[in-house]
């Protein structure tokens, strides 16, 4: 009952992006995919969602690319990094798009998604009237409205203020608590250490380390993965990671 990548290699536009990546994502846990810009995080997430042609991604033992697209859409919810919404739709209509794989309907699921993301008050407004943070939460609500078993989110905390970052983290944790598999691409190492059960750290398309935050987020691995020096400061809520330019 897992989403897995086995020896996944991928080139886009002739450039190798992922090189023999193997990772297993478990339902009920939050897995953070980390790495420097260009490390292959978003591509790995897209491969897990079968949005790029890739061999070696399986869901419960079945090839993800071979699943019926609608069934796959009901199972895997994908939140892209790009927050563009091309038409100035009403927020509620936008969130209801998450029900498309189910053939529409599902007002209760839409209401629940709006409530979970603290966006009920935004429902009658149009997308262009929202701030960047409000839009990010509405787009997350769109994915949750589909009630998928897996949530793959590419930088869901980008453009959120600290309050809504923490609320979103709590939301993702709660979703995992209900049995959903959550895979998120993150840049903030401290937040990743705080939210994630597991971490996959990528560098140049390869897995530099995987395991619990304590196992992966070491000063050495951070130095190799990001080219920075970092100090881990102990805190009851998890380590605070203080980055510095290398000397």
């Amino acid at each position: 009952m897992a989403l897995s990548a086995r020896n996944l290699s991928l080139a886009l536009g002739g450039r190798p992006v992922l090189d023999a990546v193997s990772a297993t994502f478990v339902p009920g846990r939050v897995t953070a995919i980390l790495g420097a810009n260009g490390a292959g995080k978003s591509t790995l997430l897209r491969a897990l969602a079968a949005l790029v042609p890739a061999a070696g991604v399986t869901l419960d033992g079945s090839d993800v690319a071979g699943l019926d697209p609608r069934e796959r859409a009901r199972t895997i919810g994908y939140l892209p990094q790009d927050a563009a919404v091309h038409w100035n739709m009403r927020v509620r209509d936008l969130v209801a798009l998450g029900r498309l794989p189910h053939g529409g309907g599902g007002d209760a699921a839409v209401d629940a998604a709006l409530a979970a993301t603290d966006t009920i008050a935004l429902a009658p407004r149009t997308v262009r009237s929202l701030s960047g943070g409000e839009r990010a939460r509405v787009l997350l609500a769109r994915v949750l409205a589909g009630e998928p078993r897996w949530l793959l989110a590419d930088e869901p905390l980008a453009s959120l203020d600290p309050l809504h970052q923490l609320q979103t983290l709590a939301l993702l944790r709660a979703a995992a608590g209900r049995g959903m598999g959550v895979v998120v691409v993150l840049h903030d190492l401290t937040l990743a250490a705080r939210i994630a059960d597991d971490i996959v750290l990528l560098k140049d398309g390869r897995v530099l380390g995987s395991g619990t935050p304590g196992q992966v987020l070491t000063e050495t691995r951070i130095a190799v993965g990001y080219g920075i020096e970092a100090t881990l400061v102990a805190h009851p809520d998890g380590p605070v990671i203080v980055p510095r330019l290398p000397i």
Binding site: L51, P69, A73, Y78, P80
Partner: peptide, 8 residues
């Protein structure tokens, strides 16, 4: 990408 992830 989002459209394809919705089964379109």
């Amino acid at each position: 990408d989002a459209a394809r992830s919705l089964g379109i």
